[in-house]
Simulated scan of single mutants.
Amino acid sequence: MMTDTDKRSAVLSIGRIYCDLIFTGLEELPVLGRELFADDMRIAAGGGAFISAAHLANAGRKAALVARLGTDALSSDAGRQIQASGVDLRFVEHSADAGPQVTVAAVIDEERAFLTRRAGAAMPSTLGEALNWPEAKHLHIAEYATLHEIPALVRLAKDRGLSVSLDPSWDAALIYDKGLLQACTGVDLFLPNLEEAEAITGSASPEKAMLMLSAIFPHVALKAGAQGAWSMSDGVVLHAEAEAVPVVDTTGAGDAFNAGFIHAWLDGKPHLACLTAGIQSGSLAVQSAGGFDMSLGEP
């Protein structure tokens, strides 16, 4: 007999929305006292929650963004791009204090430097409505900073029968927090990159880091850029190679990987297939500036 849970299929993706200013075609990364000139710049809607949701929608999975969006000019421009992405925006709260949220990215191949400004609180007034949405099957938390601001978030999602994934996302003020893993109790799928996993576990070895994380999380997927990705579930470690594709900008590639992996994982596919789906999604993201090529969302 099919239950209400079986009928659910949508992903809620929660996190901050940013306007990304992405500078490419640099010969070196910025240093103090020197002015650099980029060959190109793109203004793109950003933030892990949006990028993951957009790639999920592109894969055919209904995805709703749970976030706050400012009313300033930069936020409005990001909002117009988000509307064209295919993401469900019913749970986006519009508020003047939520913007502008901006990330400036300087990109050279796979090397990047970021400068980011956050604005307002992370928790949207729509959170309760989103968690009670009858179509919701899964909650993806795009950065640990969001969970840090909303400590009960995982418990609230689990109380409503949702599975939960979390990308810690690099935040120098939080990534070394001794209470990070305990705060993530209840997360089903943990999605760090190699640098984040090392900061959290103290191990630079993907296998060792995943072994330590698997004591906390039932499923772990670790992203390592050109080295591919690893996953661990039920004590089994798997690795998949990265795809050889032209790289324009790696901003958001990890969030795109998350979307591909989650989409396959929610369909009950084996972890190797989930890794492959994640890598394919991440490979798509790196071939254009910004985490999501907006032409993919066009009809």
Rank of each mutant, 00 (worst) to 15 (best):
D171L: 03
A78Y: 08
H271M: 09
A73P: 10
A44R: 13
T3V: 10
K7I: 00
V247Q: 00
L26E: 12
K62L: 15
A273I: 12
R155G: 08
L194R: 05
L156V: 09
L181M: 09
G79H: 08
F50A: 14
N258F: 14
Q101T: 14
F190Y: 13
T201G: 11
E28M: 07
S125T: 12
I14E: 05
E93I: 08
H263Q: 13
E196S: 07
G99F: 10
H271C: 07
C274E: 02
E241P: 07
D171P: 00
G15E: 04
F257L: 06
N132V: 13
G291S: 06
F257W: 03
P299H: 13
A45N: 04
D88M: 05
A285W: 10
S85I: 05
S231W: 11
A152C: 11
R160V: 13
S75T: 09
S203K: 07
A209Y: 01
G186K: 02
D293L: 03
T71A: 09
S288K: 06
E195F: 12
A244V: 14
L153G: 10
S169A: 12
L153K: 12
S205A: 09
A73E: 14
Q280D: 13
S163T: 11
H263R: 11
R90I: 11
S295W: 14
S95E: 06
V247H: 00
L275R: 01
A136C: 10
L189M: 08
G228S: 03
S165V: 08
F114I: 00
A113Y: 00
P206G: 06
S163P: 15
E298G: 15
G290W: 02
G48Y: 07
V107P: 03
H239R: 04
M2K: 14
E143D: 12
A122Y: 14
F91L: 05
A78M: 10
S9M: 12
M232E: 13
S76W: 10
I141L: 01
S231G: 14
L26C: 15
L211R: 15
A157V: 04
E111G: 06
N193T: 08
L89D: 10
E241F: 04
V66E: 14
A142E: 00
Y18E: 06
D40Y: 01
H239I: 04
A10W: 00
G225L: 01
Q101A: 13
A215E: 15
G128R: 10
A204K: 08
G290H: 11
N58V: 15
S76H: 09
